[in-house]
Amino acid sequence: MGEQWMFYFDPNRCIGCHACSVACKQRHDRDADADDWRTVTHLSRGEYPDFEEVPISMSCMHCHDAPCEQVCPPDAIVKRDEDGIVTVDRDRCIGCHYCAWACPFGAPTYDDEGLMSKCNLCLGVGPGGGHGQPERQTSEEGGPAPACVSDCVGDAIKAGPQSEVMAEASREAAERFEQGAYGKRVLVEPLEEDADLADSIREGDQPAGAITYEG
């Protein structure tokens, strides 16, 4: 079994430009209006001028425990031994959407056929393109960099075998990861502290600490 690949994201370097989303769409030749495999969401809080807006870029994280794979009734989702990449065999998918329920990241998307497709870490091209591909190679080994990584203007997204990604993260991020942050599914640089989020949501209007989704 090869080393697990994973993503890294640094909200402090993300400029919210959506280059990752477009790069992904173009690499995989997907229509502009299809659901994004890699999304950028803008979370905001506060009232002008005490206002903040933070962009968050997300995709399938190829989780070590792949909750989607665990619940997929027809075993259409595969958690690959060789590189940990989670692929989908669209010839088995029944389109039940259960993977989307189980996924912590909202990564699975469904096209007009109703079949699931999602990020395959650019292992292959297009929906289902990763299924059955040989082991993922790093850029040094001649493999393609994932489109979102290779066009991230702020250098906020990284991907690779876990040890390589860990080596590039800040000590704080790596420590938090080791302590189980985000289920150890993705390495995220710390943004800020905010302990009383749940309380402030319950308290009502514009919770001081809550980052709200604008839209």
């Binding site: 989303s21 769409k25 502009a32 209006d33 999304t39 950028v40 803008h42 839209g215």
Partner: peptide, 12 residues
């Protein structure tokens, strides 16, 4: 399309 689509998504 890619551009005006992402512009729309940025605004939810």
């Amino acid at each position: 399309e890619h551009l005006h689509e992402q512009y729309a998504r940025k605004h939810g």
